[in-house]
Amino acid sequence: MLFDRYRYVVVEGPIGVGKTSLARRLAEHYEATALLEKPEENPFLARFYENPARHALSTQLFFLFQRINEVRDLAQMDLFRASTVADYLFDKDVLFARLNLSDDEFALYQNIYHNLAPQVPAPDLVIYLQASPEALVERVHKRATPYERQIADSYLTRLAQAYSDFFYHYDTAPVFIVNSENLNFVDSDEDFAFLLQRIEGMRGQREFFSRGA
């Protein structure tokens, strides 16, 4: 069983890759606590996509405090003794900050981040979902939430590369890397079961999983 080995599992990846859908299904399958991002609560997000330069810092800081409060509350209540699946990794907040903030804003952000980060427990396992920029663009356009319609294709490309760079160096927890382009974890029980089998058989600190078209 997955949660016999990993009590705190994080599903990560760029916008449109399916991390929230997979996190929800994992939590339901294993009767675990789901810790999900709430972008709809960020009052600056829609304005960020309209005018990134003006609203990047306020958007980033809102997400930073939102995430630290959720993760810290769980840690204080000792709920990580139970099984928990999250659709965000606290450490990746810096990825978005570096991508979106000016140098002065990023310096301010880093001061705040480094004061908060020690309060965050490390996950036991990170499932990192990958997809090509072209696939991400197609998926984002297909689901078309109101604020996401304004996301530039070039931004999704830069974001996918930023994630790749981030996880190339990430070593805080074991990472199971999944090429998700030819897998449907939500609608295909076979794909979901195959993924679970591969994760439960993981033995090293970093493994890669893919399936051909």
Rank of each mutant, 00 (worst) to 15 (best):
E207A: 09
R211I: 07
E134T: 13
E181K: 05
D171F: 01
A122D: 00
F3A: 00
H169E: 13
S102V: 13
A34K: 04
T59K: 04
R198M: 11
Y6R: 01
N184E: 08
S102C: 15
S164D: 14
V140E: 08
A27Q: 04
A53Q: 14
S58K: 08
H169W: 13
A122P: 02
F80E: 00
R98M: 12
L74C: 10
I68H: 06
F44D: 11
E41S: 09
G13T: 02
G16V: 08
R72S: 00
T172F: 09
F192E: 02
L195E: 08
M1L: 04
F62Q: 07
E40K: 06
D187N: 13
I112H: 05
D104P: 08
P123V: 01
P174A: 00
F48T: 09
A86W: 03
N111T: 15
L74F: 09
A32T: 11
F65T: 03
M202K: 01
F185L: 13
A34Q: 01
E28P: 15
M77R: 13
E50G: 15
A27S: 11
D124I: 10
F176W: 04
D87Q: 06
R7V: 03
P39V: 04
R206H: 05
L64V: 12
P118A: 06
P118S: 02
I151H: 04
E37F: 03
L125C: 04
H55A: 09
V85G: 09
L99S: 05
I199Y: 01
